[in-house]
């Protein structure tokens, strides 16, 4: 492979990794705080993309969709948590089953409302072209995705480390019960966490739509990749989501290129290796079972 192509593949891998970070951050946050692997995360992602499609069809503005879709998913999250998940608090396996049910309902409703044929969303004006880059042209939108992912990671890190909300999140991840005993309203905290997780999934759906398109089955792909990222990175930590997506994105891209026949096996080989040598993931903590 020539250096130019190597560079282009590196950009492909990085932009995929950036998308994976946006996707996995919400899953990781919800797991860290609530101990629930939200298997509806892929459906939230899909719904975000379809809401964006409708917003763009009505108003023609991608940027409006980038705000409206996460907001809509956040509202859905803040309704679903108290309505469904809260009733099963402490019964983690039941909660996980419940999220599978939620995902089935959402995906089916998407099919009923938006139809089941393949759709696509154009990149916004200004980002829909290509720029000359070593060895050819490269789509501006994919460069935007890299920048957006890095920016989001920086913003989330600052919120996580330097603000009161971040402090509550870190405390909740450490020990939500103790946080409740100290007078924090954990019901509200959990609802907000679930809403932010859903909003991040919706955001990922909007950002990914111009690259990957919209089609039935996109929820499952997104869910599997985001699970891989959080398992590799370390369940429930923000640094883990960053490290996981930075590793899995490029690894998946180069795996597909270098080992064509085993394209799908490469990332799972990474999962197996990481779990073998670091069962808690790259940056995971040892969790005390409660």
């Amino acid at each position: 492979m020539s250096p130019e192509l190597l560079f282009e593949q590196a950009l492909n891998g990085l932009s995929f990794g950036a998308l994976l970070f946006i996707l996995a951050a919400g899953l990781s946050l919800v797991f860290g705080m609530m101990d629930v692997v939200n298997l509806a995360h892929g459906a939230f992602y899909m719904l975000g993309a379809y809401v964006a499609l409708s917003v763009v069809q009505r108003t023609g503005s991608f940027w409006l969709a980038l705000v409206v879709a996460p907001l809509a998913l956040g509202i859905l999250g803040v309704i679903l948590e108290p309505l469904l998940l809260r009733r099963l608090r402490g019964r983690h396996l039941d909660q996980v089953l419940l999220t599978i049910g939620v995902s089935l309902v959402i995906v089916d409703q998407i099919g009923a409302i938006w139809g089941r044929e393949v759709r696509s969303l154009a990149a916004p004006a200004g980002l829909d072209g290509s720029v000359p880059l070593v060895g050819g042209e490269y789509p501006v939108y994919r460069l935007f995705v890299i920048g957006f992912g890095v920016l989001l990671a920086a913003v989330v890190s600052v919120v996580h480390q330097r603000t009161k909300v971040g402090m509550l999140i870190r405390a909740g991840v450490e020990d939500a019960e103790m946080l409740g005993a100290l007078g924090v309203n954990t019901d509200r905290l959990f609802a907000a966490t679930f809403a932010v997780g859903a909003a991040l999934a919706g955001l990922a759906g909007v950002v990914a739509a111009p690259v990957f398109g919209l089609q039935p089955g996109m929820d499952g792909d997104a869910l599997i990749y985001s699970l891989v990222v959080v398992v590799v990175g370390g369940l429930g930590t923000l640094g883990g989501a960053i490290a996981g997506s930075a590793l899995v994105g490029p690894a998946d891209t180069f795996g597909k290129v270098l080992f064509q026949e085993f394209a799908l096996a490469v990332i799972f080989a990474i999962v197996a290796l990481v779990l073998l040598f670091r069962p808690t993931g790259l940056l995971g903590r040892i969790r005390v079972a409660r």
Partner: peptide, 20 residues
Amino acid sequence: NVAPPLGNADFAPFVTQIKN
């Protein structure tokens, strides 16, 4: 030949490979 798996979401790695 370049062979993406069926139902593959990201075509960029494969299309870049065509330039090879």
